[in-house]
Design a binder for these strands. Structure first.
Lengths: 138, 138
DNA sequence: TTTAATTGCTACTTTATTGTAGTATTTAAA
DNA sequence: TTTAAATACTACAATAAAGTAGCAATTAAA
């Protein structure tokens, strides 16, 4: 699959903030840790804050903290904060209407895989992502 | 998931040609059947021909026919003729290196779904797609 | 040999995503 | 009250995907 770069960065930054325990995270420190461009990551951080996934504090000594507990943050929530998610769950052949009752030619074969994908994004939380502490790629 | 529009059209046109039995298919007839823009579908047809999935005949009374038997045409082959497929099989978080030995934090959860997706695209042929003749959306 | 119907090629336009630049605003400390 | 370090905002640039336009090349029939 291909999540947008923006969503990928967003998941990585929330994961990083969950894993590395600091009082507050400045944009500049996150930028250097994740190797993402300055203004681009800042915009992502602002969007995550607008959606309540992060909480931001402006002014000197400000920065970002998690807006809620890592076991309450799902992947789909992060992706939704970045982009429209319909495209990930729409018809694989691009039909407007494609349901069990009115399927496209690939629907029956594709639907089970799409359902797993949806469950993956809906059920997986940031806590789950970090459940194996030996994996520390960000 | 989101296959590119180009790949979606390509799969639909090859399916249509398999299902509707005609001696030869002109670009203009396919365009009107599928409701895709003129030049865009022509380019797709040329690309499919270059990859041997279709065979084209130029000049008056020319057109396109299938380049091989529908049970020999896989979805991945059609997608590959249209775009680079690496993105569908790469790391869900976008890491260059992400393998069982050197996984990202989502790898273990994502890999099984990705493998099903790969199998779906690799194993499904156009014949399979049309195995249920009651479904005739193109 | 001319013509009409066809595919093939090249270049352009539009749209969405990705990324960059500059400046305004906020806030705690000196 | 000033200043430094931080986030927020607005506008633009670069790239890739999607779609359009026009013409060239090909070929069978008249």
């Amino acid at each position: 699959m291909n999540l947008s770069n923006t969503s990928q960065y967003a998941i990585r930054v929330v994961s990083y903030m969950t894993f590395e325990d600091e009082d507050i995270y400045s944009a500049s420190s996150l930028i250097s840790k994740l190797g993402v461009s300055d203004k681009y990551l800042k915009r992502i951080l602002t969007q995550l804050s607008e959606h309540g996934i992060l909480r931001s504090t402006q002014g000197r000594y400000g920065g970002y903290i998690l807006g809620k507990s890592p076991d309450k943050i799902t992947l789909i929530e992060i992706v939704q904060a970045m982009e429209s998610v319909e495209k990930y769950f729409g018809c694989v052949l691009g039909f407007e209407s494609c349901t069990d009752e009115d399927p496209c030619t690939l629907h029956n074969k594709w639907a089970p895989i799409r359902n797993e994908l949806m469950e993956f994004l809906n059920k997986t939380t940031i806590k789950d992502v970090l459940s194996n502490p030996s994996i520390i790629k960000f």
